[in-house]
């Protein structure tokens, strides 16, 4: 990969070092690599932070490094629907809690990914490109995110995405069952369920082990919208999933998360109920008819 680039170019030198560092210190929390054809273009995946509604989710995205890197910050964009950040939209993560516009060369792609993970469970506070989905919806998206990586780009990019997905699947524990957080008594049963869902994961990571470095994250803030008349967040989303505003006002029925089997059972139950009702009604009518006959007779 290195041969194609001018190693005298400081940005290239720096990026190659970051690639090397990323490969020699792999993390269970994220994985990121540049395209072979262009080292300024990276693909990444992060796993949803533990003990949140994103746990077990695998979220893909892309990074673009500017020619002036590391003087100018990298840009991030998510590809996997997640309910926290819009997809196909630049994420406004500026790094520094003092002057949000200040990126600095002492940060790296790694720092930024750690920050991104840390931001998943935070309140978006209306930041641009942010979504505020309900926990159940986010959990459903987390489950869906494991099924298949997003499909996009050139075959080469797709290959990289697939590789990253495989790697993350082997590292990310499965999405915990929904009842886990609501009913602690069911714990043993859930562990069984987890074991069933994740055969390729013998050495599942203990929860909380890979929590991002808090000191680093401290400095990183999500940008609030600079001006209120900028692109309203809600307008762009509804084609995919209901926007944050509408979904918070009209709670969605639980069925959205239920599996097909459950629906079958429900149908069967309804069918049975109707049948019983019909039978009862028949009997009732019959008894009335009898009554009428008696009446007539008397």
């Amino acid at each position: 990969m290195a041969e194609k680039y001018n190693l005298k170019n400081p940005a290239v030198k720096r990026i190659l070092q970051e690639v090397k560092e990323m490969q020699s210190n792999p993390s269970d929390d994220f994985m990121s690599l540049p395209l072979e054809e262009n080292i300024f273009e990276w693909q990444f995946a992060i796993r949803g932070p533990c003990d949140t509604e994103f746990e077990g989710g695998i979220y893909h995205g892309r990074i673009q490094l500017p020619a002036e890197y590391p003087f100018k910050p990298p840009s991030f964009m998510l590809l996997t629907p997640n309910g926290r950040f819009e997809t196909q939209t630049k994420i406004c993560l500026s790094i520094s809690n003092h002057h949000p516009e200040h990126w600095q060369p002492s940060w790296s792609v790694r720092t930024a990914l750690v920050a991104l993970i840390a931001f998943m469970p935070t309140n978006p506070n209306g930041a641009l490109g942010s979504l505020d989905y309900k926990k159940e919806e986010r959990r459903a998206l987390a489950i869906k995110s494991r099924e298949a990586p997003p499909r996009c780009g050139t075959p080469e990019r797709q290959k990289l995405i697939d590789e990253i997905h495989e790697y993350m699947l082997s590292k990310a524990p499965p999405v915990p069952q929904q009842s886990l957080s609501q009913d602690p008594e069911e714990h043993p049963r859930n562990e069984e369920a987890e074991a069933q869902v994740s055969p390729p994961n013998p050495e599942a990571i203990p929860a909380g082990e890979g929590l991002p470095d808090e000191a680093e994250v401290d400095r990183i803030v999500e940008e609030s919208p600079a001006n209120d008349n900028a692109n309203p967040v809600g307008v762009e989303v509804p084609r995919e999933i209901p926007a944050s505003a509408s979904s918070s006002q009209l709670p969605r029925p639980q069925t959205s998360v239920q599996k097909p089997d459950d629906r079958l059972f429900t149908l069967a139950a309804i069918g049975l109920t109707i049948a019983i009702m019909v039978l009862l009604l028949k009997k009732f009518i019959k008894s009335i008819e009898h009554g009428a006959v008696f009446m007539d007779g008397s």
Binding site: P10, K13, R14, Q17, E18, E21, P70, P105, S106, W107, S108, R110, A215
Partner: peptide, 11 residues
């Protein structure tokens, strides 16, 4: 201070 080498060595 905990700065990773790669973030400053080029400079």
């Amino acid at each position: 201070l905990g700065y990773p080498d790669l973030t400053f060595e080029d400079f």
